[in-house]
Design a protein around this nucleic acid. Structure first.
Lengths: 338, 338
DNA sequence: CTGAAAGCGCTTACAG
DNA sequence: CTGAAAGCGCTTACAG
């Protein structure tokens, strides 16, 4: 990669220029303290002068670490690219990793063939650990193999399956968040609150519905519960289904913002006013929340912090710590829709 | 990564089990022919038995290659994730690379900081070459640095800027494709054809407009030309603008499918029928083309083949060949919209 | 066809 | 604080 065919510069070249041994060069490269100020500056100058760059392969071999972390996309691209939460997470973790000077790469593993390749790549030692988002059932086999192989792993949200204590995870407090919206809806005087749930095979979907059930208590009416798939179209569809069953509800709590946006679409289409006729609340506080009219009352997931903590946890695990689980608080964001 | 803390298996362990020297193990690993059938099977069995995996860092150091290629995302994620062409390309090239047993990683380089990190990562030798899609002006500086550093590179479409002969590229024949649609429109009897152009800083945008101009010839009327940004919303917006200027047109050629879909949105909204009042044609033949009603008449870009050729070209360049430029033919796809 | 050995470019105890 | 040296796990001429 050195432009012209020139032989690659090595640590020895730098040592020669600086008038020290290669061991010393390595020490300044790695920020060790057992280096005299003079030696250090001599080496630093030599590096600048020669344009030396360390050879990662040699370093990786010597340390048996790669100094890079993978963000694993174990879903079909399609699904992920449409999800703004996912974009936040990829961006946030990349930034957090960069601050620690560790590299990050994205690895796709949508179908079985890709999963096999991803496993080979990761377990061969190309990366020191892996970050994971939204593990749905489809990605579980890969995660299982990775965990079994002893690869440090942290996911956003608990993955489906039995991984207790074998991988780290950080998630927003779904129960708290959903309770916050429900209490807000109740405070505003709503008594017939419908809900559009998330998929039943996702921890978030389950917890948010649980909070809903507790909040409505005795008034629980299963006609007011309709299933969704976290997509905007799904939210609209669910709302239509709801409207066909009954018009006797004055609020909808959608398990995420995309579905809440879809609910508003459907409500407006049906000639209903939001929030006057029906209030709508979501969950996430992502791009969808401000793309509707009225904008969404919702629960903010602290993605920035989630990203940072995911990275911190992963680095801990790579460093030999036991995998921990972290739950972060959410905050209610009140806008026009409820 | 070896599950428990066991010492990592090496080629020597395999050699011992197989009763040969480590050199021989290496030879079968690398598919050399100077290995007797007996030795080969003995080694293969030993590998299976021990579960040995080669250490990529050691191999990379010895060969000074990484056997991995990067797909560089030198745009904000946002833009790319919404573009179905991009998804095809990433998927297609990953598959083509996999067939050659070379790894692929995605690297994001949206802002300046990420670009700097991407450059460091790539030029350090982590990858042997890089694939690039849709180089717009924003990504140019990075591409320039990479090219200067002698990194093998191939882009889909010619990048903006002066890179002649210094990077490979493969693209569909925009001029041909756009001419195909225009001729189809003309054959159907349309005489007042409007166009929604792509951004003027993209080669595709320029070529498609060029073909439009040639096709309309003397009848060129600048009121029928309106600028777009390749997005669906942009296409709708452009169409509204067009309708405000004049209603005297019987067809629209949009420079891509997303804008064509937007054009249909706007036309229907204005109470016009497609294709009866106004015919609409696009370019790409991607997911948008079949998501409209009526479905789009458009030009198919052979993404599958583009992907394969991009990889082939890149491997050639990595192998020491000079960067080549490849232009692939397009085909007209006639559906209901025109 | 195969073994012994050098070499890839670092890091890191080990002496001093 | 620093140098000499071993070691990381492969690949690849070089002999044979």
């Amino acid at each position: 990669m050195q432009g012209t065919g020139r032989k690659r510069l090595t640590i020895r070249d730098v040592a020669t220029v600086a008038g020290v041994s290669s061991g010393t060069v390595s020490r300044v490269l790695n920020g060790k303290n057992w280096v005299s100020p003079e030696a250090r500056t001599a080496v630093e100058q030599a590096i600048r002068k020669t344009g030396y760059r360390v050879n990662p392969h040699a370093r990786n071999l010597a340390t048996s670490k790669s100094n890079t972390v993978a963000f694993l996309l174990n879903e079909s691209q399609h699904v992920l690219f449409e999800d703004p939460n996912f974009a936040h997470l990829v961006r946030g973790t990349a930034r957090a990793l960069a601050a620690l000077e560790v590299h990050s790469v994205l690895i796709m593993a949508g179908d079985a063939a890709e999963q096999a390749r991803a496993f080979a790549y990761i377990s061969a030692g190309h990366v020191d650990g892996v970050l994971l988002a939204f593990t749905s059932a489809g990605g579980t086999p890969l995660v299982e193999r990775l965990v079994d192989a002893g690869v440090p792993l942290v996911s956003c949200g608990l993955p489906v399956g039995d991984f207790e204590g074998r991988l780290g995870s950080v998630a927003a407090d779904d129960l708290l968040g959903a309770t916050q919206v429900m209490e807000h809806l109740l405070e505003r005087g709503h008594r017939r609150i419908a809900t559009i749930t998330g998929p039943a095979d996702t921890p978030g979907g389950i917890a948010r519905f649980e909070a809903y059930s507790r909040a409505v208590g005795d008034r629980f009416d299963e006609r007011l519960v309709v299933g969704g798939d976290y997509s905007r179209a799904g939210g609209a569809h669910a709302t239509h289904a709801l409207l066909e069953r009954t018009r006797e509800f004055d609020a909808i709590f959608a398990a995420n913002d995309a579905m809440a946006a879809g609910a508003i679409d459907a409500l407006l289409e049906a000639g209903l006013r939001v929030p006057d006729d029906v209030a709508v609340a979501g969950f996430d506080d992502n791009d969808f929340a401000t793309a509707t009219d009225p904008q969404l009352t919702t629960v903010r997931q602290p993605f920035e912090r989630i990203s940072i903590e995911m990275v911190r946890l992963l680095m801990d695990i790579i460093g030999g710590e036991q995998p921990a689980t972290l739950t972060l608080p959410t905050t209610l964001v009140v806008r026009g829709s409820a």
